[in-house]
Every structure is written in C-alpha cells, then in structure tokens.
C-alpha cells in the first residue's frame, strides 16, 4: 500500500469552484494542488484541493476572505 499522509482536503460542488480556489490559492501563495476527489469523500468524480495539514489555517483564511464556495473540508489520510 502507498504510504499516506494526513492532509487537509477541500471538496467542491463544481469544477468552477475548484478552479476559483486554485486561482485564489496561487495568487495568495497558499500551497497545495488539485487532485481527483479521494474515494473516502465520494466514490463519484470530481476534483479536490489537497494540502499539508500544517497549512490548514492558510486555507481556511483564504476560503473566508475570498468568499469561496465549496462543498466540505476534511482532515484525511491520503
């Protein structure tokens, strides 16, 4: 099995939400990247933002400040 890390993961309702977050994160220098949504969140398709758990606060601030909409956020072993 692949070795997993505890990460902060943000899931979205739409691809547009994912891309809006990616852009905001790049602009603000917040770490992480878009990945296919982990099956622990949903077995459906879609994108999620994955980042080290240590940067969680940065993301939460980014979400709030930019009024970004998303589905839910998780601490996950991925």
């Amino acid at each position: 099995m692949r070795k997993k890390e505890l990460c902060f993961v943000v899931a979205f309702h739409t691809t547009t939400e994912a891309l809006a977050l990616e852009e905001a994160a790049h602009q603000a220098g917040v770490v992480g990247r878009l990945i296919p949504i982990p099956t622990q969140i949903t077995a459906g398709c879609g994108l999620a933002w994955k980042m080290p758990i240590t940067a969680r606060a940065d993301m939460e601030q980014l979400l709030q400040q930019n009024h970004l909409t998303y589905d839910a956020s998780y601490e996950l072993w991925v």
Partner: peptide, 17 residues
C-alpha cells in the same frame, strides 16, 4: 454527465454545472 456528484440521481443544482 457533470464530472461531479456522480452517484446522485439528479443533476447538480450548483451553477454553472
């Protein structure tokens, strides 16, 4: 097809999807 929420029987309500 929407690329998201695939196991729901209804199409996503969120715009623009």
């Amino acid at each position: 097809g929407s690329g998201v929420q695939s196991y729901r029987k209804i199409h996503p309500e969120e715009m623009p999807t």
